[in-house]
Design a protein around this nucleic acid. Structure first.
Lengths: 363, 363
DNA sequence: TTGAAAGCGGTACCAA
DNA sequence: TTGGTACCGCTTTCAA
């Protein structure tokens, strides 16, 4: 790590004395107020500032304080990131989003201020920095994120409305960067149907609100059935998805053994599929010979004895989602663009070895 | 998400007018300056503040500005976190550290401001917020982190010395929270030696500086040999560890096939071991029958066909490291404790199925 | 084009 | 114990 000298205790007043002008002139000059200060003066003052080692960022407080008078916004160069607090199997998922956002922010010297949120997070649970208007906007990745409430919260701490961007979840009232959830569901279901599967297990609860990724995914499943003139209600079988994924998987295995007409599973996420494959093996069921399994996200591999990933799944463009969310946020902050837009990014079917035609069609 | 009203535009002056006192008195009262303001007045003023919805955090700028006069420190309720920018196989590793720090910080309403660093990161590459003294201290996890340089950097932006805590790497000049690297190496080597292995491959380059985790790990390897009166130099074989882990693993496989006296591998980290096992299988070598492999960290599983994790490795207390680093930092910030200490946390050998006695000793 | 001065919202000193 | 006041460093209005 390299270190270069700048003296943060230098003030506008010192530069002013040095140049024989007043601090007001220095203030105008350093901000390049061409309309109100002579070009010659500007050059002289800027040179002096550099020589004295003036650090414009260091007295941010004073600037914020002064700017408040005119109710004018100020750029803090910090973006807030709201993530669910998880220690589960989908850690990779959030780390990719996180890293790709920071990757875009660092070159612009923007920092990322992170907080965990859950469904009952209250404004006063957030770190103080969030409540001091020290951030320029939020990026969130949580189905419970509510931009209106968040917006109101911020407004109560700041006079300015701070932009919000939601990742993964398309949320009305703010910009969103989302994968094509419906296409993801469609591609997987169509893949299984084209192999000959009909009775397929999935994990989308019936009370899913519309616009939720699960609802979109389900719409994709159904679309694949309709396309070949089948009624999805006669074939799609919903499995249990509770909180404790361990017992969930065991329960799913029992269902699969009992209901032998089910020949394929649309797992809710990759790691679920991975553990399902493992548990099925312990029960003497082989994937894909006895049953086909597909995952979702392409974040976790299901390895065979050769170390190859056999999991057929859909790849989510997570890194691209993070990058675009960050870029969108920077644009909103720096260009003061306030329109809410939704960016939908394409997904890709990864055909691997965990799927094949169902047993009865083979022999 | 729940939202509760507080009006951040309320100032001390308004409360003062409301109570018929001056803002100086309100300032003292709200900070509980019992020595200089009457208890009755305090109660009256605090009640008024609550009723008017005064938010003490919201005018942090003004407070910072005022406090600067006396060169007095102020608590920002934000901790900086410096992480290497990685997209590799050890993402889990950093996510666990990250989450466990935030887990400790959130209840205290401290935020975590994250930045990526690498070996040639300069002070001016960091986000502006770092250079404005908006953080109360650093937590770092990078071998290139240099607390003296960082300290000087911070001092050049702030008049106060901000504490630093290093995770994983024991770094002189700041507090550290580290796993027992030497014990980790010792436990794995002793395990392999006790099974009967002698010629063992490892990945510690000879020019590793002392105190580096690798050097400590190596000391542990050697200790295990000495303990049974063997000269480690006659048996330990160093493998190549370059940047591109893919070709590294392939290269290691070639070495193992060529040098048949080598019967076990001390892999540099779990995922390396996982891929090594996979690649060996493709070459017709089975683990552990033909060769024993151990990992390091217990962050990634090597699954067999039953979904069981077979990787013998050492478990690092990552979550505990993050939690203790955060706690230590909070203590330094809130209690102004400045002594540098090192906390060394125990590691645990996880004996699984990727190790067994070498072939020649079996038959 | 520049200078002088009035804030922004606190803290802290000196009198009373 | 309280009031009055002078800052902290910057922006901005109003005069010159």
């Amino acid at each position: 790590m390299v270190f270069k000298e700048t003296n943060s205790s230098v003030t506008l007043q010192e530069i002013a004395s040095h140049c024989g002008v007043t601090k007001g002139t220095v203030s105008r000059a350093l901000r390049g107020d061409l309309a109100h200060v002579g070009p010659e003066t500007i050059k002289r003052i800027k040179t002096a500032a550099r020589e004295l080692g003036y650090n414009p960022g260091s007295n941010h407080d004073a600037r914020r304080l002064a700017l408040r008078k005119g109710n004018r916004p100020i750029i803090n160069n910090t973006i807030g990131l709201l993530l669910p607090r998880k220690y589960g199997y989908d850690c990779n998922y959030y780390m990719i989003l996180f890293n790709s956002i920071l990757e875009m922010l660092m070159p612009k010297h923007f920092g990322l201020l992170v907080a965990h949120i859950c469904h009952d997070t209250r404004a006063e649970d957030l770190p103080y920095a969030f409540r001091r208007d020290e951030i320029d906007g939020f990026i969130a990745c949580d189905e419970n994120f509510h931009p209106y409430i968040m917006g109101e919260m911020i407004k109560s701490y700041s006079s300015v409305k701070r932009p919000a961007v939601s990742m993964i979840y398309r949320i009305p009232g703010c910009s969103s960067v989302v994968p094509d959830h419906q296409m993801a569901g469609y591609l997987l279901a169509r893949h299984l149907l084209s192999l000959g599967h009909r009775h397929i297990m999935h994990f989308i609860p019936s009370n899913t609100p519309p616009y939720h990724p699960h609802a979109l995914r389900m719409a994709g499943y159904r679309q694949a059935y309709y396309e070949i003139h089948l009624n999805p209600d006669s074939y799609l079988q919903c499995g249990l998805l509770e909180n404790d994924a361990y017992s969930d998987v065991a329960n799913t295995v029992r269902t699969l053994i009992r209901r032998s007409e089910i020949t394929a599973v649309l797992a809710p996420y990759d790691n679920y599929a991975v553990r399902l494959i493992g548990l099925l093996a312990q029960c003497g069921k082989r994937v894909p010979e006895d049953i086909s399994i597909v995952g979702m996200d392409d974040t976790d591999p299901a390895q065979n004895e050769h170390g190859e990933n056999i999991l057929t799944t859909v790849q989510m463009p997570l890194r691209e989602i993070g990058r675009q969310a960050a870029e969108l946020m920077l644009h909103k902050v720096l260009e003061k663009e306030s329109e809410d837009i939704t960016i939908m990014l394409p997904v890709e079917l990864m055909e691997r070895a965990s799927t094949c035609p169902p047993r009865q069609l083979k022999g």
